[in-house]
Design a protein around this nucleic acid. Structure first.
Length: 1079
RNA sequence: GGACGAUUAGCUCAGUUGGUUAGAGCGCACGAUUCACAUUCGUGAGGUCACUGGUUCGAACCCAGUAUCGUCCACCA
């Protein structure tokens, strides 16, 4: 923890960052010598500070950013009060790989950071804290004070998680940081709420909801968990002479029964269906029930008694039945989980548990119980506090997922398959985008889970009876003096008085479900809602034709020409897709006529504004045009407005980014529309246009319904486009035994513990390799240590390369001009192969495969083979530099710190030359040498065979062994002789026959022998070894022969396969002959 | 009850449209220490690809069924 605080201090402190900048400007930070072991903690924080202060995370600082294709990811916002855990670390590692890869690949890569206010969770934490420390409840503090305390708490914690994100090396654009409860997001939430409310997609209704008595709040279906417990199932009658026996585990709820349901075809009850039975229940001071007997297909004849008591107010299922059969509802349990007066005077005020005991006692006393049995029962509990949920009726706000609304299209990336203006439901759009793969889910099987969830979706209860969060933007008139005052008023701005009677208003006390705001995350982080202003110049007027400049004087005659009318009509056509709120127009005749045409075609109201009039000669026009814009932007914030005005007027709105018109003339073309978007501060922005939809959403599969589905719902509704093209679902990180990491088990791995120990790069590798989408990942400290070793390996590869010659930047064409040995060609060819395969794997989001490929190349082929060979052949500086600098690029997305450190040491031209923004490896330009690959592979096999002989027969490790090779590949192998001799510690003699009395091994390349070493104690018998080998080869040949003599195989298998089998056979036969010769 | 996933070496997992004498890392065994790295190097042992059938010239891979484990959804009053 000391380490964490240290880091907080260093990055939190602006002075410190300035110091970095100063430090790096005035000091030569190049290492004179690389230390023997890589020490990550020596470089990581400094490097991150350098990247950040250089602005390298902001895409607009990338070279040629305007011409780059955008690539966007928004970080799934962690709770603002959370601390980094290994799940966050995994998420960040994956997303950072994507962002860094695409950034280096020439994309305008944007990764937006942010945190979530997590309304209910955060309030619970603070409430508990206050309860513990001060012994008071939220009701003691009051709403304003509690919210103040929570905000204070969030404020004190929010920076911690952000700094921890930095610790992971995440290249997030911190200049665009967002919070789900800040001002821009609040405006967005209110805007979308109002739109939904106005369209009837949001409604307020009295419905049975999930009530958590502990949290004193409603919960959505997705905030529930189930707990299994054993319960007594009582079989009983309501009264002695009651004709139907029912069964229940909660007899106390029967006090609220209003019906008895049976199966429609249950012959026992046919005569009772439709009737109402009146029966006293619960004792003399209990209640009198009026029970309708209804037939419902949901009732199973064979379960229990085949009949059930219906309690509409306190059961979701019963509530459904009550709606279907129009059965009345009686609430008998209150929000404090105590019985109400409606449960009868004997029960009122009792806890549910006590009431149950009392009812059961009464049933027993009356002899009404027929049977009692223990059953396993699943009960819903609150996912936050594990309290049992009580369903009860309550006036709540809902999102209607089955309400038809008029679909609005995005002008940017319209959804395919749903026409603009067509009537659809949220359920339909949610299903549609995934079904048509406009949003693809990886792994694919989660599409089924998603679709299933959508199909079973009920209206989404969005109000919560807590105090922290987005308060519902609805007000009620207190006095209700007029007839109109009764209706709730939804408003984006705070409402101060009733618009009908000017009386006082009360805001709805509830706040919104936290997922309502996080559902808007992909686009509200990009500045939505924008005010779109569409500037339209009037169509061609007679003054334009006649060349009259100061046309104001002829206004009454200066209308549109026929051409001008046509222009206005064309313009109207292009604006059909815009969901504009109003037309604001200059009152002059030509603009008036243009506006009227637009108004008619688009069905919009026109409001004329004097400030839009054409400029009079020598007038300072700026003041009135800008005053107009200020007012318009304020009044229509978040909406789209069409402004019909004059050329000069338009071109003078310099401060609003309108002067650079899309025309070659000094003035905009007639009736041309120029769209500008403005954020809440009135400045022109374009983030949404550039960066939405997001490229990828990367998150855990556990919040697919909660969050991913909600984002699809909100975004298709608000923007008419998908929030993201691809959803990548990662698994949960578990411990080495596969258990969920938890505080109580103490099995968690805290990233902040292991980062200082092994380095961020090692932690990232451990999270990236071995993980696959949708599957859980096992994590252990040993695994991280293994990747720490690899980080060090890479470091030492670089150390060796950089110490064996000058570092220099080398291009592919420079390499092609060199005299290359087979060894060089082998390496370069393998590298070209691996670079292409690695990039391909990343494009397909196969992180683990990509990482393994590159690790194997780096460790085995480069370090173990090429570097060793290079020591023999010498003079490899150029090839080595070339491979290293490209290898660093490939590794950078996975291991940003060690690669950048090496880059800064060896290749950076100046302090602002960062590997993280260097262009990706151009593997397409690399030359492949398939011949050399084969040839060097032969040398590798020979070296392996000699090493194996030495190990098998216990040849002293230091001894130089005379090796005899009988081979038909003498020419190829002779070229590699120095390498073979060094790497296998031997002297090679090529011969036509193998010398007698030596120990032999037979491989594809031929027979290899070494002299018998002295004092062979327990070494294995050569003959037995060879015989074993012979048998296995003979067996192999057997199977190949039978395959090749099978007519069906030869007849049906593809020629290439047969060819391969034949080659295998020939090789094996040769080998067998050589073995036989030795025996 | 429904759906989905997993089952390959002691452990963790690869295995791309069926063409494999089934791979990697860790662990294990044996050997190696001036000369980039012991956070290293070399060699090796270790597998009826859960089981049973089927399709196919050919199955770890496709199909059906079974078993075990896991996850999610829905729940029976």
């Amino acid at each position: 923890m000391v380490y964490t605080n240290d880091f907080v201090y260093r990055l939190d402190n602006i002075a410190q960052v300035r110091f970095f900048r100063y430090y790096y400007q005035t000091h030569d930070t190049r290492m004179t010598e690389m230390p023997k072991a890589y020490e990550p903690q020596q470089f990581e924080d400094d490097l991150y500070a350098r990247w950040e202060s250089a602005g390298a995370f902001t895409p607009e600082n990338l070279p040629d950013f305007q011409n780059r294709e955008p690539y966007t990811i928004v970080v799934p916002p962690p709770n603002a009060t959370a601390t980094l855990h290994v799940g966050h670390a995994s998420m960040l590692a994956i997303e950072d790989v994507l962002i860094r890869y695409h950034r280096m690949n020439g994309k305008r890569a944007l990764w937006i950071p942010g945190t979530d206010h997590a309304a209910l969770a955060t309030q619970n934490v603070v409430e508990k804290m206050i309860q513990k420390e001060e012994g008071v409840t939220r009701h003691d503090l009051g709403r304003a004070e509690l919210v103040r305390r929570i905000e204070e708490f969030v404020e004190s914690k929010r920076d911690r998680i952000k700094l921890q994100f930095r610790k992971m090396g995440a290249s997030l654009d911190w200049t665009r940081e967002a919070f789900t409860l800040d001002a821009p997001r609040s405006l967005a939430v209110r805007t979308i709420f109002k739109r939904m409310y106005d369209e009837g997609v949001i409604y307020r209704g009295d419905r049975v909801v999930n009530w958590c008595p502990r949290c004193a709040s409603t919960l959505s279906d997705d905030e529930l968990e189930t707990k299994t417990r054993t319960a007594s199932l009582y079989y009983f009658k309501y009264a002695k002479d009651f004709p139907i026996t029912i069964a229940s585990t909660q007899p106390e709820t029967k006090l609220g029964d209003t019906a008895v349901a049976v199966h429609p075809r249950d012959e026992r009850y046919q005569n009772l269906i439709g009737g109402v039975l009146q029966v006293p229940f619960g004792g003399s001071r209990g209640v009198v029930l009026h029970l309708r007997v209804v037939a419902d297909h949901g009732v199973e004849k064979d379960f229990g008694t085949g009949a059930l008591g219906v309690t509409p107010a306190h059961s979701m299922v019963d509530y459904g039945m009550a709606i279907a059969h129009q059965i009345p509802l009686v609430q008998i349990i209150g929000e404090d989980a105590r019985m109400l007066e409606t449960a009868g005077p004997d029960y009122a005020g009792m806890s549910v548990a006590d009431a149950r005991t009392k009812v059961v006692a009464w049933l027993r006393a009356e002899g009404l119980i027929e049977k009692e049995e223990e059953t396993e029962q699943n009960v819903p509990v609150c996912s936050r506090c594990a309290s049992e949920i009580i369903p009860l009726p309550k006036l709540q706000w809902f999102v209607n997922v089955n309400k038809k609304f008029s679909f609005k299209h995005s002008p940017r990336a319209p959804l395919a398959g749903i026409e603009a203006g067509s009537l659809v439901t949220l359920k339909e759009t949610m299903r549609h985008v995934v079904e048509t793969h406009q949003t693809a889910i990886i792994p694919e099987r989660f599409e089924k889970i998603y679709t299933h969830w959508v199909d079973n979706l009920r209206d989404w209860c969005i109000s919560r009876q807590i105090w922290y969060g987005h308060r519902i933007p609805v007000w009620y008139c207190v006095a209700q003096k007029t007839a109109e005052c009764g209706a709730p008023i939804c408003s984006i701005d705070d409402l101060l008085m009733c618009p009908h009677c000017n009386g006082a208003v009360d805001q709805d006390p509830d706040v919104l479900d936290t997922w309502f705001s996080s559902g808007t995350w992909t686009f509200t982080t990009l500045g939505w809602p924008y005010t779109r202003v569409i500037f339209v110049r009037h169509g061609e007027a007679w003054s334009n034709v006649n060349g009259v400049m100061d046309a104001e004087i002829f206004d009454a005659q200066n209308g549109l020409t026929p051409e001008g009318v046509a222009q206005a009509l064309v313009c109207a056509g292009t604006l059909v897709r815009e969901d504009a709120a109003i037309i604001l127009a200059s009152p002059v005749l030509r603009t008036k006529e243009t506006a009227e045409i637009l108004s008619e075609k688009l069905g919009l109201e026109i409001r004329f504004d004097e400030r839009l009039r054409e400029m009079a000669t020598s007038e300072n026009f700026n003041d009135r045009s800008e005053s107009f814009m200020r007012d318009a932007l304020e009044e229509f914030q978040g909406r789209t407005v069409i402004v019909v005005t004059h050329a000069a007027t338009i071109s003078l709105l310099k401060n609003y980014g309108v002067s650079s018109m899309e025309t070659t003339e000094a003035y905009p073309a007639h009736a041309c529309a120029v769209v500008r978007e403005f954020d809440a501060s009135g400045s022109q922005v374009g983030d949404l246009n550039v960066y939405h939809p997001n490229a990828v959403l990367e998150t855990g599969y556990d919040i697919l319904p909660n969050w991913v589905a909600r984002m699809i719902l909100m975004t298709t509704y608000a923007l008419g486009e998908v929030p993201f093209r691809t959803v990548y679902l990662h698994g949960l990180v578990r411990d080495a035994e596969g258990r969920k990491m938890s505080k109580s088990l103490g099995n968690g791995i805290d990233p902040l513990d292991v980062i200082p120990k092994y380095g961020t790069d090692a932690v990232r590798l451990a999270l990236l390799l071995g993980q696959s989408p949708g599957n859980d990942l096992r994590m252990s400290e040993e695994k991280i240590a293994g990747f720490r070793n690899f980080t060090n390996k890479l470091w030492n590869v670089a150390r060796f390369i950089l110490s064996s010659g000058d570092s220099c930047v080398v291009t592919a064409s420079e390499i092609d001009e060199l005299e290359l040995t087979t060894l060089d060609k082998w390496l370069l060819s393998r590298f070209a192969d691996v670079a292409a395969a690695f990039s391909g794997a990343l494009e397909r989001l196969e992180f683990s495969r990509a990482g393994e490929l590159l690790r194997d190349f780096t460790w085995n082929e480069l370090a173990d083979w090429y570097l060793e060979g290079a020591k023999v052949e010498g003079g490899k500086s150029v090839v080595l530099n070339y491979v290293l600098q490209n290898l660093l690029k490939l590794w950078h997305p996975f291991m940003p710190f060690v690669t950048e450190t090496i880059w800064q040491t060896a290749y950076a031209k100046d302090d602002n030359d960062f590997l993280m923004v260097a262009p990706w490896v151009d593997f397409g330009a690399m030359t492949l040498y398939p011949e050399a690959e084969h040839e060097f592979a032969r040398a590798q096999r020979v070296i392996g065979a000699i090493r194996a002989l030495r190990a098998d027969y216990k040849v002293a490790a230091g001894a130089i062994v005379p090796v005899t090779i009988v081979t038909k590949f003498k020419q190829t192998l002779a070229l590699q002789q120095p390498v073979i001799e060094k790497l296998a510690r031997c002297v090679v003699l090529f011969a036509d026959t193998a010398p007698d009395g030596q120990l032999a091994t037979v491989i594809e390349e031929g027979t290899i022998t070494i002299p018998k070493p002295e004092a062979v104690g327990d070494s294995p018998d050569e003959k037995i070894k060879l015989e074993a080998e012979r048998d296995s080869v003979a067996h192999y040949i057997e199977s190949l022969r039978s395959k090749l003599s099978n007519e069906e195989f030869v007849g049906r298998a593809p020629a290439s396969v047969i060819e391969k089998e034949r080659a295998k056979l020939a090789e094996a036969e040769e080998r067998l002959a050589a073995i036989a010769e030795r025996l």
